[in-house]
Amino acid sequence: MTVVADEGTLLLTDRQCFAVLNWAAEQPQNGPVLRAFLASIALAALRPTEALALRVRDVELDDDGTGVLLVPAQGQDVSVERADGTGAVRRVPACLELVALLRAEISRRRLRDDDAIFALDDGRPLTALVYRKVWRQARTAVLEAHEINSPRGRTVSALRDACLAAWLKNGDQSAAHILRVAECAGVSAPRLAERFAHCLRRPTRAEIPWDGLEAALPLPGLGDELATAELCP
């Protein structure tokens, strides 16, 4: 999750990510909202600022338990895009687990369309100051002693990085798949592939389309030259 191309070992593991969510849920104050907020980063790869900006109207929940998060470009309001077709809004899939948490939070606080989804139990907004403090506490509680002073999971964005890495690893890793992950993440495909190169496997020899390569890369006149060479003593 805090990743550069050659530092895949710094990613938080799935176990650590879910341990963080469970730790947040167990907090006596603001437990449910903290878990839902962190889950939106860990399960939908949102940036923390994007998660904070989510309002009820930005969440489309389907009957099958899945959903879509409408995430506006930085500094824009998704309602502007809806009204006149302008603005950059990306559609991020929400899995069953995340949808369940969002439904519970919306119902628990009886939120309306214009309400921010993530707010503290006393009504104050969830801010970067609050979630960074919570993240430091969660990280200390979840990581092994020898990992606490390491770069592993240094910031809450580590949850986003782990999600992106999982999406890349679990797909077919085709160009179309990488492009789709990049669109969901709100980054360019080349930048995503460069940063998470350690998550992209190299094709095995059996998977390389040798016939296609040979057909696509013939040397001009090579066949004639070989035939002539075979006839020469």
Rank of each mutant, 00 (worst) to 15 (best):
A141T: 10
Q74Y: 03
G65H: 08
A88G: 07
D64T: 08
E105N: 01
A116L: 11
L98I: 13
A116S: 10
Y131I: 03
R91M: 14
D63G: 09
R82A: 14
V68Q: 04
T127V: 04
A119E: 12
V78C: 14
V59K: 05
C95F: 07
D77I: 13
E147V: 06
A145R: 07
R82Q: 14
F118V: 08
L69D: 01
L54Y: 06
A128L: 08
P72W: 01
L98M: 12
T140S: 14
A104G: 06
T127G: 01
R82V: 04
D84E: 07
E60Y: 11
G123C: 10
E144W: 07
E105T: 04
V80C: 11
E105G: 01
L98T: 10
K133N: 12
D63C: 06
A83I: 09
G67S: 03
G75A: 01
A138Y: 02
V78Y: 01
H146E: 15
A141M: 10
D122L: 06
Q76S: 12
D114M: 04
A94V: 05
V80W: 09
A88I: 14
T140Y: 09
A138W: 02
V130N: 03
D115I: 09
D77R: 14
V80M: 12
L61V: 15
V99A: 03
H146C: 05
S79D: 14
R136A: 01
V99F: 00
R136P: 00
A116N: 06
V56L: 01
R109Q: 15
A53N: 07
V130H: 12
T140W: 08
L101H: 03
A145K: 07
A73Q: 11
V68S: 05
T66M: 02
R103E: 15
L61T: 14
G87L: 09
R82N: 04
D77V: 11
G87Q: 06
L129C: 09
D62G: 07
V99Y: 03
A53S: 13
G67L: 04
R112C: 05
D114R: 11
D62R: 15
A145H: 05
V99G: 00
L143H: 06
T86A: 10
E97Y: 08
A53W: 01
E147K: 05
L143S: 09
A104R: 08
R90M: 11
L129R: 15
G87D: 12
A94W: 02
D77Y: 12
A83R: 13
G65I: 09
V142K: 06
I106T: 11
G123Y: 08
L120P: 00
Q137C: 13
D115H: 14
P72G: 03
D64F: 04
G75Y: 00
E105F: 00
P93F: 02
A94R: 00
V92H: 03
R55W: 06
A53I: 02
A83H: 07
D58C: 08
D64M: 05
V80F: 11
Q74M: 03
V89I: 15
Q137D: 15
